[in-house]
Design a protein around this nucleic acid. Structure first.
Lengths: 219, 219
DNA sequence: GGATCACGCCGATCTTGACCTCCATGCGGA
DNA sequence: TCCGCATGGAGGTCAAGATCGGCGTGATCC
């Protein structure tokens, strides 16, 4: 959450006329842009909308950011770092691998469920063809997978290629299931509690990954 | 593959001047549109590009499809049906659940690796904000998950909610891992063989899902 | 065998909408 | 009281989706 001064009423237009120092104005513009991009996607979002939402006119927007793309990238970078840092923190929070899986999955669900809907920028972007955007979005999966692959490698001794692929699969599991769990939730459908959902998927992941090479040929 | 008459050289422009019956022209336009949408995404793709690729002028395109969106949806419907049918076929191909998981995962990998890159429409669309598109893309995950959830339910007796969430996670596993496996492959990086990759992920999935409620509290 | 007709096709144009800048204006310090 | 600077309204530009009247070709009919 940002301070009430910069965003008095999330989702509503800020009344015009307030004079802000550069730093604060920039932060406020970022918040307004996030709300608009999350709600509308990149293409449908107009710079007018963002300026209106912030209670300023378009030229001030362009005095803080060179263009629409750079504004989007600034938000995307923030979001990407948040996911990766969250994953890293979860993995470092314990030495028990089962707990690691659980913590990571909970981190994913918590991030996806966070109020701002920031995850849409990363997991549901509509600008995937732009190289700069593509690179940042891929970085989430690759770096999270890299962190996890390390743990898998230490635990199982599998070749690096296979560790990475398994790690990517685990990330995909969390990402897709969390998105659909949230979608069910916001659609009012009665659904599973967050902790229970994350725990369920963590269980699936842990059963799949634990002691990998040994239990290869059963049933 | 389509007949040489309608697409003599994939990726190249068809020379202008050939007169085709409506049905054949429409099929050719769909193929051209698929190539362009796959290569550029929805927004970056111009109707001019598609017309050029097909060797016709823009008005012809509009005589076959009411607009850009409808053209895209026609292709998307085809792709969505292909994925769901493939999943259904894989699940019905055997009665052994381990084989079912393996067959389904192989089906996913085969689809993603298919030459036309059709999977990009479903898994990497840049029009996720349009309701019609969103609904179709979600249908892939929900219906595939529904099919899988049925099997899980019969096997484990878990509540429906949990079966569906687990099934969605499995779908996400296949989708994301297959996409990244393919990406590594097309970037020339030496990577795992398709059968081996699909088998690896199938193993992960099967270990995770088999005999679910029983082995809950180990290590 | 020749004219008619229908169908498919094209060049050129219109229009919309979104990103991005020019001149007037009003507020904070010397 | 006067100056500098951030701000606002209005407009330019351009790309891309969508369209109109005319042309050529092959089949049909007399």
């Amino acid at each position: 959450m940002s301070s009430p001064a910069t965003r008095p009423n999330p989702g509503e237009r800020t009344p015009r006329g307030s004079r802000l120092p550069r730093r604060a104005r920039r932060a406020q513009l970022l918040e307004s842009a996030l709300e608009v991009f999350v709600a509308q996607g990149y293409h449908a979002a107009a710079m007018d909308d963002i300026a209106d939402r912030a209670g300023v006119s378009k030229p001030v927007l362009y005095q803080h950011f060179p263009g629409k793309l750079e504004l989007y990238l600034a938000l995307l970078d923030r979001a990407v770092d948040a996911v990766i840092d969250g994953t890293r923190a979860a993995l470092e929070s314990t030495d028990d691998n089962k707990q690691r899986v659980a913590a990571t999955m909970h981190a994913f669900y918590t991030y996806v469920a966070s109020e701002e809907g920031e995850f849409r920028l990363v997991f549901e972007s509509d600008l995937t063809n732009d190289p700069a955007v593509r690179q940042r979005i891929d970085r989430v999966t690759t770096e999270c997978a890299e962190l996890i692959a390390h743990v898998i490698h230490d635990d199982t001794g599998l070749p690096d290629d296979q560790c990475r692929l398994l790690a990517v699969a685990l990330v995909g599991m969390g990402e897709v299931s969390a998105r659909f769990w949230l979608q069910d939730r916001v659609q009012g459908r009665d659904t599973i509690e967050q902790d229970m959902a994350a725990g369920l998927i963590a269980g699936l992941a842990w059963r799949g990954i634990r002691g990998y090479p040994r239990t290869d040929e059963q049933t």
